[in-house]
Amino acid sequence: MAAINWGYGISKPRAIDIDRNNLRRSDEILHEMPELQSCIGCGSCTAVCTAGNLTEFNFRKVHTLVRRGEYEGAYELMNRCMLCGKCRLVCPRGINTRGVVMLIKRKLGDF
């Protein structure tokens, strides 16, 4: 029987599924840099971000997704970072944001 052309497919779920995600890399990242957990999502880093003002790179969002085990694309996005260091100047929690960029790139290079 010929395959049916339905004109649509079953949409894939958008939800972050913590049960399905492998949190091992995320745990390693947080173990090496526990201060990343203290992010309060203020967005200062993204507001000052040189790359984020010109591309869709959103540092806050990417590292939050990584902490939830959503690694896909994180490495490529972190490559947008110009390592200018402005984000570290403004972070009210004193997070070594440049260090976070380097750490995520190191841990997730193969994603």
């Binding site: 939800a15 972050i16 599924d17 913590i18 049960d19 969002k61 939050t64 959503e70």
Partner: peptide, 15 residues
């Protein structure tokens, strides 16, 4: 449980 992870703009679920 289900929630929105509002800081990433994605629904989130876990047991």
């Amino acid at each position: 449980i289900k929630a929105e992870d509002t800081l990433t703009g994605r629904p989130l679920r876990m047991s």
